[in-house]
Amino acid sequence: MHIVVCVKQVPDTKIIKINPKTNTLDRKSAPAILNPYDAHAVQEAVKVKQLTGGTISVLSMGPPQATEVIKKSIEIGADRGYLISDRAFAGADTLATSYALSKALERIGKDIPVDMVICGKHAIDGDTGQVGPGIARRMDIPPVTSVIEVSEVNVKEKTILIKRKLTSGYELIQAELPCLLTVEKEINEIEYAPMPNMIRAARYQPIIWTVNELENVDRAQLGLKGSPTVVGKMFTPPRPEGGKKLEGSADEQVKQLMDLLMDKKDLLTVQSTN
């Protein structure tokens, strides 16, 4: 069983600031972290490997410092790490990103054929969730998104049973391997990294490929050039007028609010239950 997990280094959006003058992201303001959903993807690969045995590879695309998120993945339990890093990949939207990653997966698969690809539901800096299904299409394997449980892996039959989250409830899906899953956070809890993993991660040097080391690449489909979408403008939406701020002490404000609410007979009434 060879599982490849796609991971992304992202700015921690909880901390990130926007430069109000340029309306751009002040990347220096936020620490770079392993996308939280991807951590769950790696953890799920570890759980599957405990059942089936095999190898877990992680793949990332980004600047050289993205090796940090590969090391983090090794800590969680991945065996190998690959980073594709090249100016040619820069500025990619989701379509160009899935193209580059699928080319890297092609190369990884030459060493050991890939049985399963796992991605996080989405990256917290883009929130799109479009790259995972895109990779699956390019590899011509079935995608299953919003996975909340891997219920069964049958290595001999090459099938997998998965619970997929729906708007209300879930569905149980049987998929043929190889397939691609994107996982929700609730699929597992990230476990504390065992000491040997941490030591291994600290010393680990991932394999880094430039575009020249990938095969049959159509450069027109990479990076900014290969991206059909562009950001037209960034703007702060017009502030709505807003309502009325109440005045006075906390007690007075609460009192005013209660009067206003109790007047709203079209919204609520207090009825005697007797």
Binding site: T13, K14, I16, I18, N23, L25, I124, D125, D127, P228, T229, V230, V231, G232, K233, M234, F235, T236, P237
Partner: peptide, 15 residues
């Protein structure tokens, strides 16, 4: 965009 206080308008000009 960016989980924050800003909107981005995305265009697809040639496809």
């Amino acid at each position: 965009a960016f989980g924050g206080n800003i909107m981005a308008t995305i265009l697809c000009k040639k496809h």
